[in-house]
Structure formats: structure tokens, C-alpha cells
């Protein structure tokens, strides 16, 4: 493969790596798995890159590949280490920005999201990233109406987890 393509790809990914890191932080529980998933997404992105046409934004295109890898292709490694402090690194909340109750609420919310199933996580992720329903429906392969219905259910699910 040619060097120029390689250089363009790595540069674009380097600039947009936040998207991948966010997906990894939602779908994994420890640093090793995070890196593992990041690497797998990178490989999948690179494999698909020759088919990437400039007409879409690189970041838009990344969402689909990253989520597909997390939901479908990635196989969790055997060890299931649940390190609590890892969560708090990624979802760190600056104490001075919020009052205590808000901070507490956010913490509970992030925890609740991590308990959701793979598909629900994807919905929440796309919502948090401010994607509209047409993009959500295209990424997941469900109709727009159903994306709305499903999103409402996820919100309800979160509500139940928050207020048991």
C-alpha cells in the first residue's frame, strides 16, 4: 500500500482519536481492554480506509466503523478485571465545576450507562454525541421511528436504574 495513503490515514485518525477513545471507554472496563479495542478499531478503520470516499466527513465515517467493531467484531478478552479507579479516570468530573449533588448524579448516570446492553450503549453514545435520528437509524440499521422508540425506552431504562 502506498505511503501517502498511510500517512493521510494516521494523521486523520490522530486528529479524530477522541471518538474512538470514547467508544472504548463505554465498552470496556479496564485499561488493557480499552487499548485492545482501540487497536482493533484502528485495524478495521485502516482496512476499510481505501473504500472511504471524501464525500463524507472522516469523523462521520469513523462512528460507524468504531461502533460496529465494539458491538459486533470485538471479542472481550478472557480476564474480566473491574478496576473502579479506571472508570473514574475516564469519567473524571472536576469537583469545582459542579455542586455535590450534580456530581453525584453524573457519577450514577455514567455507572448506569455502563450497565446497559451493547445496542443501548450505542444509542446513548450517539445521543451524547449529538447525532440526529437519521444518522442513528443509518448507523444501527433500524428505521428512524424505531430509533426514537428505542431511545425513549433506553431513557426509561436509565431512569429505572437511577431511581430503583
Amino acid at each position: 500500500m502506498n505511503k501517502e495513503l498511510e500517512h493521510r490515514f494516521v494523521t486523520e485518525l490522530e486528529n479524530n482519536q477522541n471518538i474512538v477513545h470514547k467508544v472504548c471507554s463505554l465498552y470496556t472496563n479496564d485499561r488493557d481492554s480499552h487499548n485492545d479495542l482501540f487497536q482493533e478499531i484502528t485495524i478495521q478503520l485502516w482496512k476499510a480506509y481505501p473504500k472511504f470516499r471524501g464525500d463524507a466527513k472522516f469523523s462521520t465515517w469513523m462512528y460507524r466503523v468504531a461502533l460496529n467493531t465494539a458491538i459486533t467484531l470485538y471479542r472481550k478478552s478472557k480476564k474480566k478485571v473491574r478496576t473502579q479507579d479506571y472508570d473514574s479516570v475516564i469519567f473524571k468530573i472536576k469537583a469545582d465545576e459542579y455542586d455535590d449533588t450534580q456530581e453525584q448524579q453524573l457519577k450514577i448516570m455514567y455507572k448506569a450507562i455502563k450497565q446497559l446492553g451493547d445496542i443501548d450503549k450505542a444509542l446513548v453514545f450517539l445521543y451524547l454525541e449529538d447525532k440526529d435520528y437519521s444518522e442513528i437509524s443509518e448507523t444501527l440499521g433500524i428505521s428512524e421511528v424505531n430509533a426514537r422508540v428505542k431511545m425513549n425506552r433506553v431513557k426509561n431504562k436509565l431512569r429505572t436504574i437511577l431511581n430503583p
Binding site: I43, Q44, K47, R75
Partner: peptide, 17 residues
């Protein structure tokens, strides 16, 4: 991650399902 870190990743083997 740095440019080089990402660059080494693209040649790793996939372990996808």
C-alpha cells in the same frame, strides 16, 4: 496516542470475531 503509536497499530493482526 501519538502518530507513531497509531502507525504501529495499523499493521497489527486483527482479532475480530
Amino acid at each position: 496516542l501519538s502518530y507513531d503509536e497509531i502507525h504501529t497499530m495499523i499493521w497489527k493482526k486483527s482479532s475480530s470475531i
